[in-house]
């Protein structure tokens, strides 16, 4: 019973903050609402008994990625004067494209309420089970994804390096 109320509260917070990300005028406020959204999603993970995922979600998204976002936005010092002028046609086109995306999303998710997820092990999200699954059943994809990270890191270092003449 309690969990149900917590779920509704978290769902409200995530939807509200996600909406505020789009609606807010001040870019710094947008980022802060996005951080709030990430926290409520971490709360959902905890409700699903996936504590490891929740902690990593907070550390990686709220703690690292959003800090860099905030960094860039604070340094850019965006305000209404420096905002590029958007023509009416541009806004019109943006509304149509995002509306189409909404239609597609609703269309794909419409049939999903009849889909019943097979109930797996409820403790699958605990760190021990997750680690065993990752390193036994999905070892190759896991290692390959680490190469992806390596590529991204090398790319970032290359871009950040001063040009040698």
């Amino acid at each position: 019973m309690m969990i149900k109320y917590i779920f509704y509260f978290l769902a409200f917070v995530s939807v509200f903050s996600a909406l505020m990300v789009v609606v807010s005028k001040n870019p710094v406020h947008c980022v802060l609402y996005l951080i709030m959204c990430f926290f409520s999603i971490a709360g959902h993970y905890i409700l699903l008994n996936a504590q490891f995922l929740a902690a990593v979600h907070v550390i990686v998204y709220a703690g690292a990625i959003m800090v860099l976002f905030l960094f860039v936005i604070m340094l850019l010092n965006l305000n209404t004067q420096s905002e590029p002028h958007k023509s009416t046609w541009l806004k019109f086109a943006a509304a149509i494209t995002s509306g189409l995306l909404l239609v597609i999303l609703v269309g794909t998710l419409k049939g999903s309420e009849t889909m019943v997820m097979p109930l797996g092990n409820p403790n699958a999200g605990l760190i021990k089970n997750l680690g065993i699954t990752l390193f036994k059943d999905f070892l190759l994809p896991f290692e390959v994804s680490s190469i992806l990270f390596l590529v991204a890191m090398v790319g970032a270092v290359m871009l950040g390096k001063k040009e040698i003449k």
Partner: peptide, 25 residues
């Protein structure tokens, strides 16, 4: 005694940056 104690500690640490950043900005 949550079984992700170290990660929790680390998560709180990574949020701690916001107090300084938001205040300064």
């Amino acid at each position: 005694d949550i079984n992700i104690g170290v990660l929790y500690m680390f998560g709180v640490l990574s949020i701690g940056v916001y107090g300084v950043m938001i205040g300064g900005w």
